[in-house]
Amino acid sequence: MKPPPFRYSSPTTVADAVALLAEHAADDARVLAGGQSLVPLMNFRLAQPGHVIDLRRVAGLDTIRLAGGELVIGAMVRQATAERSPEVALAAPLLAEALGHVAHPPIRNSGTVVGSIAHADPAAELPAVALAMDAELTAVGPGGERRITAADFFQGPFTTALGADEILTEVRFRSFPGGHAFVEFSRTHGNFAVVAVAVLVALADGRITRSAIAASGLGGTPLRLTAAEQAWEGSTAGSAAIDAAVDAGTAGLDPAGDLHAGSATRIDIARSCLREALERATERALDRR
């Protein structure tokens, strides 16, 4: 369980990192953030980059800031830092809640928020949060900077819209006034999700005005459960609305099964997680008024 030989660079600016990525494209150059996914893949020789470009020393990537109603998390912000950040707690409590489900504390001390999104594991928590929060990713490549919405970003298991010559520098979460809930089912604590559900909901006069619902573990990418959103929006908050959303959200799902749960069990679990998340988010939305 040792990687094959590779070269290693540790640039200090985004421009240098992007230049290195282009320079070593033929060598299958890869960006290294916290290394908690890439290094195991290299040890199993499932990824064999010829050149590894470490973002650790790149200036300016390790900050969390609030900018005009948006929470901006730099590419080298560790999951543990985000988990404890007052800005995150304030602007994106859904993200804070989800972070507690990502792996174990020692892994979160190293793994990054952006790295998890970039990696796009279909069982990971943070991609679902990014999708629910309509996050935007800032990508920098030889052609300059561009923004990619979460909805466009995730294309398949471990596959994203990011070009091979691009680096993500940050992720921007739009804050959502209302209630939130992140509910996960995993085999053991700290494991990847079998199913995880992220819910945001806003209420006015006891009615659901707006919501965002996304889930991991039910397909090759995180899924936005728009049918569930539509099913309960406009209704009075309560168990009838939740029943409708659960039924609509899980109708027609056909997740692939795996070792941890077959397809039918996954839907059973999804119903349970979705219900719990909708209830908790609604309660919190009611508390907020």
Binding site: F44, H104, T188, H189, G190, L259, H260
Partner: peptide, 16 residues
Amino acid sequence: LITSSFLDYSIPTAME
């Protein structure tokens, strides 16, 4: 063998 590492072979942690 589809449980050839601890990613797939689940072991109870202190939490379980």
